[in-house]
Every structure is written in structure tokens, then in C-alpha cells.
């Protein structure tokens, strides 16, 4: 029966394959970490933008309502000035 040796090719292959897998895992883990950090950063930015959109829309609508206030008051004033003497 053949003795297993640390130096035999099969063993060396296992070791090499394990080292490759570990190296690959390190790479992927690192890349994931980078991705996670980037995602959170992106999400932070998206949330900030979403808030901005909401604020902008709120401000836009308020502006529109103010203008509508003016238009309506002007309309009311114009219509109220109608005479009723005929």
C-alpha cells in the first residue's frame, strides 16, 4: 500500500486547490465588502435625494397653491365687482 506523503502530487494538488479557493474566497469577500460599502453609500445618497424630491415637490405645490390663492382672490374680486343695477 502506497504511503501518503505531503510531497506527492495528489496531496500537493489538494493543497494548491485549497490555497486557490482560499485566495478566491478572500478576493470575493473583499469585493463584497467593497460592494456593501458602496451600496450603503448609494442608498444613503438615494435616501437623501428622495428627501430632496419630497421637499422640492412640497415646495413646488406650495408655490402653486399660493399662486392659486392669488388667482382665486383676483377672480373673486373681479366677479364681485359685477354691478347689479340693470
Amino acid at each position: 500500500m502506497k504511503q501518503t506523503s505531503i510531497n506527492d502530487p495528489a496531496t500537493q494538488n489538494i493543497i494548491a486547490a485549497a490555497k486557490t479557493a482560499i485566495a478566491r474566497a478572500k478576493e470575493v469577500n473583499k469585493a463584497s465588502e467593497v460592494l456593501i460599502a458602496k451600496l450603503h453609500k448609494d442608498y444613503d445618497e438615494i435616501e437623501a435625494r428622495h428627501k430632496e424630491i419630497e421637499q422640492q415637490l412640497t415646495a413646488d405645490v406650495q408655490g402653486i397653491i399660493q399662486q392659486m390663492d392669488k388667482d382665486t382672490l383676483q377672480f373673486l374680486a373681479d366677479m364681485s365687482s359685477m354691478g347689479g343695477q340693470a
Binding site: 424630491i53 419630497e54 421637499q55 415637490l57 412640497t58 405645490v61 406650495q62 402653486i64 397653491i65 392659486m68
Partner: peptide, 11 residues
Amino acid sequence: EQDPIQAEAAA
């Protein structure tokens, strides 16, 4: 408040 949906509903 800060809710655009409500502001829009107001309009």
C-alpha cells in the same frame, strides 16, 4: 408636514 403626498392632495 414634510409629506409631498399631503401637499399634493391639498392642491
